[in-house]
Write a protein that binds this DNA or RNA. Structure first.
Lengths: 346, 346
DNA sequence: CGGTGAATGAGGTACGTTCCTCAAAAACCT
DNA sequence: AGGTTTTTGAGGAACGTACCTCATTCACCG
């Protein structure tokens, strides 16, 4: 019933405690045969090391870095805050968490920033960045030197990262499409699509998902070419305003990136707020307000706290060679409407 | 930078380690004045006790009980499994988790079952039960003997429970209402409402939320009197079938409780599957399938894993007198449609 | 002022692990 | 066989806390 300890393993394997320790911590100087014997005893007894005691003993200080783009969106601010908070909590126990803010869309700057903090060994790294060869190579190097790596929000499927912490963006786009289609009703019309950049993988995926669903299930809705807002409020407002006055029959707007304030600005100026169905991403102070006043009808969201906790948990699990709880680490595609809005966190 | 230890507190307060220990663990034999001095040192240095080391030292085995009704719904089975799994994971570290399955709608049996396991002291208890005076008194007694108590899924607002782990059911009903209204379109019609029992608080709340939203925003939809299915597939099928043949113009069904299989049975037999908008609760194997084949259009769900983790975390935090992370413990009202369905867990 | 009981201190052991040293044993090589 | 290297064992200290005992000090009382 009680959990076996290293002492039990030693007894079971017929070796000394020192040898068990050498095996457990992959220290050299143990015959292959002995390693096997110990591992067998471990599986036989179902030993799992007491991480708490281990960390206590080794006084380990994990060193983690979160690499985030220097974008002033409310979502990223919330994410930074969430990371800071999580780092202070029990998941961040015994660890130092650096947040590296790097210029967006500049992979070289990102690589430099990460390498600058490699003077001390880095145990784990969470990277949010567009998919580029530079970043992929960085991940390869980090992994080679033993750093655990997760990708955050935007995946790098080509890189040997340990895990992706974020949502399936095609599914998110599909979800947005269904909501738009259902909410807009049966009359034909056009859908304006606002993205951060057409070069960002997540934006492309979301748009792709949207188009799939519209074609399949809402053929009376026609999606317009992507408008690029570059996560900037004013720019977003200008491009969407231009689009709205050029096109008639825009019945819905899907804003897949940041800069959502620009979207609501444009709608309000055009007198369209509440008359055009809007689906946006990420719950922020602004999207919350817009949901409440009826300018935005649904928000697709990934919880910043969950992202931060999950990233840190996964990194620690990888380092300690522990299993991860798939169910817990799966980031959900939250659908938020006015009625199921979580109460604001003070 | 490094966290202060009890030794630092002792030095800072000018007392011995033994005294600090007495204060920290609320042991008797310390003058009020000294307690104050120690507490002051604690806040001054910002000491937080190292729970891992503490648990290691005291070899504490928490004893928890989850009290669940003996209902054979897929959701409850999933919840039982989730609890078992969580108990094995890091959150359940050093704790024994009992799952008491008690006859539904029988508060006396529930009370007896809980009291039967009180021969050994119980550190924490999570209760899922209808709101009754018997349960309230049980909570009072448990609290009095020092057991932490949370209510699960259904709250007992009158009882001195430490925390409620679950969703706001009025908001869940409102959410369901908006989805029904949006999905059903502008044509007038009737909404059938299936509940487990009209005596269960959560069912009443959900129905209330639904009616609020329909009245406010979808006055062309008229909700019919609640049908009671008592979480039973066959009974549910019968009452809903009867309703569907008695009423014309039923354009939507809201099933607020378990027995969802009875709902889809009735719709299929009546040839209405896919032609009537259906909103159900809880993601199970069955509701997943029905979402995929178009019989159900949206599912309002609370994640069983999250419920289990949250309940256990909150109980432990209360016992260790630690703060809880509100954001993490807030159970979300998940809206699931075909497009944002999480992949099935094997 | 001495007596008494309460308050405090000093010190030890334990929890499960890491990490270290030094000695002993075993394996390997010519 | 002897010597060398590799492998193993034995033991101890440490991490931060809990909990125990016993001795000492203190405050208060009459």
């Amino acid at each position: 019933m009680v959990r076996p300890t290293v002492i039990d393993i030693a007894r079971e394997a017929g070796v000394s405690l020192a040898t068990v320790d050498r095996v457990l911590n992959a220290r050299p100087g143990v015959r292959e045969k002995t390693v096997l014997a110990v591992n067998e005893a471990i599986t036989r007894l179902g030993y799992v090391r007491n991480v708490a005691a281990a960390n206590l003993a080794r006084q380990r200080l994990y060193r983690f870095a979160f690499v985030l783009p220097d974008v002033q969106s409310q979502f990223l601010q919330a994410l930074r805050m969430a990371i800071t908070e999580v780092a202070r909590g029990p998941i961040g126990e015994a660890s130092e968490v650096l947040i590296l803010t790097v210029p967006p869309r500049d992979p070289h700057a990102l690589v430099r920033a990460v390498e600058d903090c490699l003077d001390q060994p880095l145990d784990g790294c969470a990277i949010m960045a567009n998919e580029t060869p530079e970043v992929r190579d960085l991940v390869v190097r980090l992994k080679a030197q033993g750093t655990a790596v997760v990708t955050l929000i935007t995946d790098q499927p080509q890189a040997p990262r340990d895990h992706f912490v974020g949502i399936d963006n095609v599914a998110a786009g599909r979800t947005a499409g269904v909501l738009l289609g259902r909410f807009a009703g049966p009359a034909p019309g056009k859908v304006a699509v606002v993205v951060s950049s057409m070069l960002a993988r997540d934006m492309v995926d979301r748009r792709f998902g949207l188009d799939l669903v519209l074609a399949e299930r809402f053929p009376h809705l026609q999606s317009l070419p992507s408008l690029e807002g570059h996560d900037d409020r004013d720019l977003t407002e200008r491009v969407l305003s231009a689009c709205l006055s050029a096109q008639d029959q825009v019945v819905a707007v899907y804003t897949a990136g940041a800069g959502t304030r620009g979207v609501t600005d444009a709608l309000r100026k055009g007198g369209l707020a509440g008359r055009v169905v809007v689906v946006a991403h990420e719950l922020t102070g602004h999207t919350r307000e817009a949901l409440l006043d009826g300018t935005i009808h649904a928000v697709i969201s990934q919880d910043a706290g969950h992202l931060a906790r999950s990233a840190l948990r996964v990194l620690r699990a990888r380092i300690d060679r522990l299993a991860i709880d798939e169910g817990q680490e799966r980031i959900r595609i939250d659908i938020l409407i006015r009625e199921n809005l979580p109460p604001p966190t003070s």
